[in-house]
Design a protein around this nucleic acid. Structure first.
Length: 422
RNA sequence: GGAGAGAUGGCCGAGUCCGGUUGAAGGCGCACGACUCGAAAUCGUGUAUCCCUCACGGGAUCGUGGGUUCGAAUCCCACUCUCUCCGCCA
C-alpha cells in the first residue's frame, strides 16, 4: 500500500506506475473518494467536538445536582447527525481503502519499463557443461533412477505433484539443510520455522490479497490459506509491531513447503519438477532501514547466488521489467539456473525490495533512538532457493552417460558421503 | 469439543460491580537533566498510536465488530485470541 499523502502529492508518478505495471486501478476515482471522505470527516469531527464539549458540561451539572435536560435534548439531535455522517464516512473510507489496496508499488527508476522482452541480464556465472552425450531431462533421469515418482504422487494428490524416494528424498532434504546451514552460519540469518497456514489479515499484509486469492489454496472452513511462500508467514511475524532501532535489520531464513494452485499457467514449462503445486523453498527475508534497502537487495541476491556457486551450477541474474515484477515489488532480480537437459534457464529465485509497501499494509514500524516519530521498515525477501528447479538442474548437470547422477561435493556430508546415485 | 478465567500504553498492572473533567493511577523500562573525576545509586523532567489541518487546533482508539445512552475502558450481544482444567488425538 502506498501512503495516501504520497499519492495526493505525486499523482503522475502513481499513474505511471499503474500503467507500467499493467494494472488498471482508477486513480481519479480514488481522488474523488478521498476528497469527499476528508470533507465529511471534517464535518463529523466538528459535531463530535460539540458533543464532547457539551457532554463535559452535562457531567458537571449532574455532579452539582443541577438540571441538564436542555443540553441532553440538544445532544440527542447532534448524535443523530453524527451517526448519519459516520455511516457515510465509513462507506467512503472502505471504498477509498479498497482502491488503495489495488494500487501497486512504484517501480525503482533503474527498472526497465515494459514486458518480458525488456528483461535485462545482469550477469552470468559458470560454464555451461559440455556433454559428449545427449543430456536427459530430469524427469527421465529421476524416474529411471527411481528417485522421482510422478505417477504415485498423482495418485495421491493429482497432476503436478511429486514423490521423492530413497536417495532422491535424501537429496531433497540435503539441499534444504545445506541451504539453511549456509544462510545461518555464513550469512547471518536467524532460522525460523513458521506456520504453513496463514490467515487473511496476514495475506493482506504481504500483498497476496486481494489480488492473488485465486492462486492460493484456501481452507474454507477456517478461512486459512496454505503458505504460497515463506515471505507470507515470516514477514507477518512482526505485523502490527513497532521495532526498536537496535532490532534492525531483522534477518530471517526459513524453510517452508510452498503451495500454489498455478491456476491458468498451463502450456510449456510444466513437465517434471518445472511447475508443481507443492514445493520446498528456503527463503531469505530482511526488515531494514529505508536508507539501507537498496544495498540489502544486493546482499540478499549475493546470498542466494552463493548457493548455486557452491553447488557449481551455472546461472544468470536478470532484472525484471515493470510488467514482470510483482504487485508489491519496487525492484526484483530473478536468478535462473541453467538446466542442460531441458536446455533452458529455470527461475530458482526471485529477490525483491518491497520498500515500505508491505510494511504499511502489515503495519510494521520502527522508531529510531531518540526519535518520537515512527517509520515504516523496508521489507525484502528472496528465495535462497526454491528446490524443485534447483534439483532438476542438479540432476541434469551432474548426470553421467550411464544415467547416474554425481552428488555435488558440498552436499555429500548431508548424504552421509554418498557420491553418486545410480 | 466441554467448563472456567482473561485481553488496558514499549512491558507489568489499576480502573470495569455503582457509565460522566480517565487517553487512562502506580511500577518497570527508555530518553534528557542534576549530583559525580566517571559510574552505580538517588533526585527531577519527559515518554502510546493513528487520522484531518499550512498551522492553531480537532477527532479516533482500552482484543475485533455491533448495540444501549446526551455520554461507554466501564452496560448488552456476537466474534477472535490467550491461559487453566476435562475430553479427544499425531
Amino acid at each position: 500500500m502506498l501512503d495516501p499523502r504520497f499519492i495526493r502529492e505525486n499523482p503522475d508518478l502513481v499513474k505511471k506506475a499503474i500503467q507500467d505495471k499493467g494494472e488498471k486501478t482508477d486513480l481519479d476515482q480514488f481522488f474523488r473518494l478521498d476528497q469527499e471522505w476528508r470533507d465529511l470527516l471534517k464535518k463529523g469531527d466538528a459535531f463530535k467536538h460539540e458533543r464532547n464539549q457539551v457532554s463535559k458540561e452535562i457531567a458537571l451539572l449532574k455532579k452539582e445536582g443541577k438540571e441538564a435536560e436542555g443540553g441532553i435534548q440538544q445532544m440527542r439531535e447532534v448524535s443523530e447527525k453524527i451517526q448519519a455522517l459516520d455511516g457515510k464516512i465509513k462507506e467512503l473510507e472502505e471504498k477509498r481503502v479498497e482502491i488503495l489496496t489495488w494500487i501497486p508499488n512504484i517501480p525503482h527508476p533503474s527498472v526497465p519499463v515494459g514486458g518480458e522482452k525488456e528483461t535485462k541480464v545482469i550477469r552470468e556465472w559458470g560454464e555451461k557443461g559440455k556433454f559428449d552425450f545427449e543430456p536427459l531431462p530430469h524427469w527421465e533421469l529421476g524416474e529411471s533412477l527411481g528417485i522421482l515418482d510422478f505417477k504415485s504422487a498423482s495418485k495421491v494428490a493429482g497432476a503436478h505433484f511429486t514423490t521423492y524416494k530413497g536417495l532422491g528424498a535424501r537429496l531433497e532434504r540435503s539441499l534444504i539443510n545445506f541451504m539453511l546451514n549456509l544462510h545461518t552460519q555464513k550469512h547471518g540469518y536467524i532460522e525460523v520455522f513458521p506456520p504453513f497456514l496463514i490467515n487473511r489479515p496476514s495475506m493482506f499484509g504481504t500483498g497476496q490479497l486481494p489480488k492473488l486469492e485465486e492462486d492460493m489454496y484456501h481452507l474454507e472452513l477456517d478461512d486459512l490459506f496454505l503458505d504460497p511462500t515463506a515471505e507470507c508467514p515470516v514477514t507477518n511475524l512482526h505485523r502490527e509491531e513497532i521495532l526498536k532501532e537496535e532490532d534492525l535489520p531483522v534477518r530471517y531464513t526459513a524453510y517452508t513447503a510452498c503451495f500454489r494452485r498455478e491456476a491458468g499457467s498451463y502450456g510449456k514449462e510444466t513437465r517434471g519438477l518445472l511447475r508443481v503445486h507443492q514445493f520446498n523453498k528456503v527463503e531469505l527475508l530482511q526488515l531494514t532501514f529505508p536508507e539501507k534497502s537498496e544495498e540489502t537487495l544486493e546482499k540478499i541476491l549475493r546470498d542466494a547466488e552463493e548457493v548455486l556457486k557452491l553447488l557449481k551450477l551455472p546461472y544468470r541474474v536478470v532484472l525484471l521489467p515493470t510488467r514482470e515484477m510483482s504487485f508489491a515489488s519496487n525492484k526484483t532480480y530473478d536468478i535462473e539456473v541453467w538446466a542442460p537437459g531441458v536446455k533452458k534457464y529455470l527461475e530458482v529465485s526471485s529477490v525483491s525490495n518491497f520498500t515500505d509497501f508491505q510494511a504499511r499494509r502489515a503495519n510494521i514500524r520502527f522508531r529510531r533512538r531518540r526519535a518520537t516519530a515512527t517509520e515504516f521498515v523496508h521489507t525484502l525477501n528472496g528465495s535462497g532457493l526454491a528446490t524443485p528447479r534447483t534439483y532438476a538442474a542438479l540432476l541434469e548437470t551432474y548426470q553421467e552417460k550411464d544415467g547416474s547422477v554425481v552428488i555435488p561435493e558440498v552436499l555429500r556430508p548431508y548424504m552421509d558421503g554418498v557420491e553418486k546415485i545410480e
